[in-house]
């Protein structure tokens, strides 16, 4: 970025010196900005900190309650981990809370606050998160472009770092943390058909990467289908006879967060199937209530009740039967 001595020679078809002069004038803002940048960098290297005199001992002199000292039962509070805040040579409490000398020596209302975390913190979300990302960038590779970052969510809004067991890292309590904001998803988890979230067998993080991913909806896998078949591997194929929407995206038919219909289906067969299938081999019949058993109409049982279309087309996820082109075998 050095202009002048390293500037490339004028091209062979260089225009008049007058025009070249205006080019230099146009570079002036860049040069000024560069000078500012150099000045700022120099200022940085000359800075001296205002950390406390005794580190954590200064803090613990006042903050001795278990709500604070719980940190020593977490990964952050392990002195033998050189990379943890309490590891050898690390900044202890001030690694996360920032320099605390002014806070420790201040009095009354003029006492400045250290960096604080959590939903009630007055510290800006960006500052909170940058403190965490200083060490945890690798755990949150895609954080910056993540919806959580875009919606001003701070790490401390979800993580409770001074508790020996962070609720968001335990499936039994994680769902409650996530649904404190994602209220609709919490409601979905109560629907008649749902994944075992409230039962603690799964967590939101079983499928989603809350710190961001390059997949849609911060999924842990690259695509919806790839994610679902991590557990439901029987449906991943490849099959001799494929069902196109299955190969493309499970969420075409299923609502993974919970559904009022069985098997997490978005709608009830035959109507779900008829949203894509018309007359194909057999007519697209109006399966009305008069087709129900005992209704007195023309009984449509095998087409309408029990499994409906799936009574015959049971291999809806794909078939390896040589005669399975209709997904019936």
């Amino acid at each position: 970025m050095r202009y002048g001595s390293n500037a490339r020679p004028y091209p062979m078809n260089a225009r008049s010196p007058c025009i070249q002069g205006s080019r230099y004038r146009a570079l002036a803002p860049i040069l000024v900005a560069f000078a500012l940048w150099v000045y700022a960098s120099a200022a940085v290297s000359a800075s001296v900190g205002t950390y406390t005199e005794k580190g954590a001992d200064t803090c613990l002199d006042c903050h001795e309650d278990s709500a604070v000292t719980g940190i020593f039962r977490t990964a952050h509070g392990r002195p033998t981990d050189a990379h943890a805040p309490f590891g050898h040579g690390q900044l202890q409490c001030e690694a996360c809370h920032g320099p605390g000398d002014a806070h420790a020596n201040g009095t009354g209302k003029s006492r400045p606050s250290v960096i604080r975390f959590g939903k009630k913190s007055q510290t800006s979300k960006e500052v909170q998160n940058e403190q965490c990302l200083t060490c945890h960038a690798k755990n949150a590779a895609h954080w910056g472009a993540n919806a959580h970052a875009g919606n001003q969510v701070a790490c401390g809004d979800c993580h409770t770092l001074h508790q020996p067991k962070d609720p968001v890292r335990d499936f039994r309590t994680q769902t409650l943390v996530c649904t404190s904001c994602h209220q609709a998803r919490g409601a979905d988890a109560l629907k008649p058909s749902h994944h075992p979230l409230l039962e603690g067998k799964m967590g939101c993080s079983s499928c989603h990467a809350p710190h961001g991913s390059t997949a849609p909806s911060a999924l842990k896998a690259n695509t919806v289908t790839e994610l679902c078949t991590t557990c439901h591997a029987e449906n991943r194929g490849p099959f001799l006879w494929e069902h196109e929407p299955v190969a493309e995206d499970c969420s075409n038919c299923h609502d993974a967060h919970g559904a009022t219909q069985p098997s997490l289906l978005k709608s009830r067969p035959p109507f779900l199937c008829q949203q894509c299938h018309d007359v194909q081999g057999h007519p697209s019949v109006s399966y009305g209530p008069d087709g129900l058993s005992g209704s007195g109409g023309v009984q449509r049982g095998v087409f309408l009740q029990a499994g409906s279309c799936l009574n015959c087309h049971s291999k809806v996820h794909g078939s390896n039967h040589p005669s399975g082109s209709k997904l019936m075998r």
Binding site: A33, F34, W37, Y39, V44, G55, T69, F86, L91
Partner: peptide, 28 residues
């Protein structure tokens, strides 16, 4: 570049004197 300069100047990293950091009160 200007914004970078402003950002750097506004948020300089600090250095701690850790000679007396014993962590004697730390309940490991």
């Amino acid at each position: 570049l200007a914004a970078s300069a402003a950002a750097l100047a506004a948020d300089p990293p600090l250095v701690a004197d850790m000679a007396n950091w014993k962590c004697e009160l730390c309940p490991f």
